[in-house]
């Protein structure tokens, strides 16, 4: 494991913890898209099917379990927690899941490495992760005014994606036969989706003002 991969995993973990912390302590999920969180839960559930078949390392297994448990807990909090669910703004969070899930699934059926259930689910999870942030970005655009924790959550997710790209570049030059087009292209698409957000995030940080997205 290289430093970029580890830093990427840690920012990913931090993003989830920031979100859980926000929900747990403030008892509010204002500004958080339930649609995006449900898509992430689906991403992890379909990607980590190999928990049952392959053992890679203790680190790998533990991280997978953490991402599974945390993503489903976040969904549970927003949907069922008696206080948190009241702060969920259903009318603003209108993105339809199947607009993203269906094309990703069809694409995974056509473009994959191997036509097996596990491999197709894994590929589907990569495609879906690439676009799962869209409902969240749409919600941010709509509400415009973003609280610090939500801004940090999206920033950490973007940092995680950027670090994974550096990890792939590093692995490409240090490991033989490390060529993974499906992972790279979906990862690149995912990172590019954050570019616009990053631009406004850094501007607000530079000018020391509250983050606001243009309508």
């Amino acid at each position: 494991m290289n430093i970029f991969r580890l830093a990427g995993d840690m920012t990913h973990l931090a993003s989830v913890l920031v979100l859980l912390l926000k929900i747990h302590t403030i008892k509010s999920c204002a500004g958080i898209s339930l649609k995006t969180q449900e898509l992430y839960a689906l991403v992890f559930a379909t990607r980590y099917l190999d928990l049952f078949t392959d053992y890679i390392s203790l680190y790998n297994t533990l991280m997978k379990l953490i991402f599974l448990v945390s993503s489903f807990s976040i969904v549970w909090y927003i949907r069922h927690h008696k206080i948190v669910r009241r702060s969920y703004d259903k009318d603003q969070d209108t993105f339809r899941h199947y607009f993203l899930v269906l094309p990703c699934f069809l694409l995974a059926l056509v473009i994959n490495e191997k036509f097996t259930v596990k491999e197709i689910m894994w590929t589907f999870s990569l495609y879906l992760e690439a676009v799962a942030i869209l409902p969240q970005l749409v919600l941010l655009q709509r509400t415009r005014n973003i609280d610090n924790l939500t801004g940090q959550y999206v920033f950490l997710l973007g940092a995680y994606r950027s670090l994974y790209i550096l990890n792939w570049i590093y692995r490409y030059f240090t490991e033989p036969h490390y060529v993974h087009w499906i992972t790279w292209i979906s990862g690149l698409v995912q990172t590019l989706l954050y570019a616009d957000f990053f631009y406004y995030y850094f501007q607000s940080w530079k000018n020391n003002v509250k983050l606001e997205l243009p309508a």
């Binding site: 991969r5 995993d9 990913h12 190999d50 392959d54 890679i56 790998n60 991280m63 997978k64 991402f67 490495e113 191997k114 491999e119 894994w122 994974y164 990890n167 060529v179 993974h180 499906i182 992972t183």
Partner: peptide, 10 residues
Amino acid sequence: KELPQGHDEL
């Protein structure tokens, strides 16, 4: 054991 591409990543 040889893993399929990128499967050791999260």
